[in-house]
Amino acid sequence: MRQNRRTAAANSGPEKAPAERVVKDIRRATRRQFSAEEKIRIVLEGVRGEESIAELCRREGIASSMYYGW
């Protein structure tokens, strides 16, 4: 019985690495890259104050912390 437990543990270990790699690749592929012009446009819209920062960030699909970081 001990060999069966070891075999099951040994088999489950290496399978995790490829799954984690796939998840990282998916995250990387779905991550948006904003150009300098896009960042400037978004920040200037926020500075104008026509709508709240929260509304602006929701519309643009960014976190408010990212907005303030820019």
Score class of each variant (00 low, 15 high):
A63S: 13
E51D: 09
E45L: 12
A29F: 02
G69I: 02
N11F: 00
S12P: 04
V22I: 12
E55Y: 10
K24S: 14
E37G: 06
R21Q: 08
E37P: 04
M66T: 08
P18C: 04
I42Q: 00
C57L: 08
V22H: 09
V43Q: 05
A17K: 12
Q33E: 15
G69T: 08
S64T: 13
S65N: 15
G69A: 12
A9E: 02
Y68N: 07
R41H: 09
S64P: 04
G61V: 05
A36N: 10
E37D: 14
L56F: 08
I53P: 04
R41V: 10
I40K: 12
D25K: 11
I53W: 03
G49V: 04
V22W: 07
A54N: 02
T7V: 13
C57K: 00
F34N: 00
G61W: 01
G13P: 01
A19N: 03
Y68H: 08
A10N: 10
T7G: 00
S35Y: 01
S64K: 14
G46C: 06
A19T: 04
R27T: 06
I42D: 01
V23S: 14
S52K: 12
R27D: 08
G46T: 03
R58P: 00
P14I: 06
K16W: 05
D25W: 01
A9L: 09
R6E: 14
A17C: 00
L56P: 03
R28G: 02
V47R: 12
Y67W: 11
Y68T: 01
Q3W: 07
V43I: 10
R59H: 08
V23N: 09
I26R: 11
R2W: 05
S65R: 15
V22Q: 13
R6V: 09
A29I: 07
M1H: 01
R31Q: 12
E20M: 07
E38H: 11
Q33P: 04
I40D: 02
P14C: 08
S35A: 13
R41G: 09
A17V: 14
I53M: 05
T7K: 14
P14L: 05
A9Q: 02
P14T: 06
E45S: 12
A8N: 08
S52A: 12
R21P: 08
